[in-house]
Design a protein around this nucleic acid. Structure first.
Length: 257
DNA sequence: TCATTAACTGAGG
DNA sequence: CCTCAGTTAATGA
């Protein structure tokens, strides 16, 4: 699988636990000016690592927590389901993100947090995050900014789901994931890891898995992208971007603006 | 287990 | 009448 997604040894994955924070620090630096001292304070937070298999629940709806996690490797999703059991993936999360940071202030989780692939998660205590926010205002501010940006991503996802046709919807989702991966150091943007099953993809796009397969094979036949075994290859960059209608303003990646 | 494809269906423009 | 998308089912990897 992917270079940035998996480590082979799951028992003793990191000799240096500070490594765990690098994707997070890269991400926060892409949206704000963190100095060396801020980064070191983050690296000093105690963590406990947990490895989970694909399709597991990290936190169920209604649960509370005294810790939040940083995704070290693998992809997670936040989901909500109807009473009839139809599932919507509300957001997809990649390494360096803290998908359950909200439990710091919203006591009971209003959705489920689950794994889409095998993942490694680093859990940090709420008390440590609170202390850090009190001591280092730049960190407090960047976490605030990060959650506002997350709300912006949700608005974009809502537009995508409600108003774009399925091929554009898929293209936009893939384009966004690629933009977010770039921050972590994606050297060749013509190919990237997207290890979701088509059923998971369908749950994120609001279409059935059969239709997901149709749309994927349509884009393949059209020569826009190739997508197999969890990896996307962009064949025609121009048409990919046009189809996605991608405008990265909503990612708010320039720290100064 | 996951992906592909065909056939049929209905909604809606 | 055409396009999109859900369902069902058969089949392949």
């Amino acid at each position: 699988m992917g270079e940035c997604l998996k480590r082979s040894d799951t028992r003793e994955p990191y000799l240096n636990t500070a490594d765990v924070f690098e994707p997070l620090i890269r991400r926060l630096r892409s949206i704000s000016a963190l100095d060396q001292e801020d980064a070191n304070c983050l690296r000093a937070i105690p963590i406990s690592l947990r490895n989970l298999r694909s399709q597991q629940t990290v936190l169920a709806e209604g649960e509370s927590a005294s810790q939040s996690c940083i995704i070290v490797s693998g992809y997670c999703a936040r989901t909500k389901s109807t009473a009839q059991g139809r599932r919507q993936i509300v957001s997809i999360h990649i390494p360096g993100e803290m998908p359950d940071l909200q439990t710091l202030f919203l006591v009971k989780l209003d959705h489920e947090l689950c794994t889409l692939t095998d993942v490694s998660l680093a859990f940090v205590n709420h008390s440590d995050i609170r202390r850090l926010c009190k001591d280092r205002l730049t960190i407090r501010d960047v976490l605030w900014r990060d959650t506002l940006i997350e709300a912006s991503l949700l608005r974009e996802a809502l537009l995508n789901l409600g108003q774009r046709p399925a091929p554009s919807r898929l293209a936009h989702l893939l384009y966004e994931v690629r933009e977010r991966l770039k921050v972590l150091g994606l050297n060749d943007p013509s190919t990237f890891e997207m290890p979701l099953t088509q059923e998971q993809l369908g749950d994120a796009l609001g279409i059935s898995w059969v239709h997901t397969s149709r749309v994927v094979s349509m884009l393949r036949k059209e020569g826009v992208i190739d997508f197999s075994r969890g990896r996307v290859h962009v064949i025609d960059e121009k048409r990919f971007a046009a189809l996605a209608e991608f405008d990265k303003l909503y990612l708010h990646q320039s720290p100064s603006e």
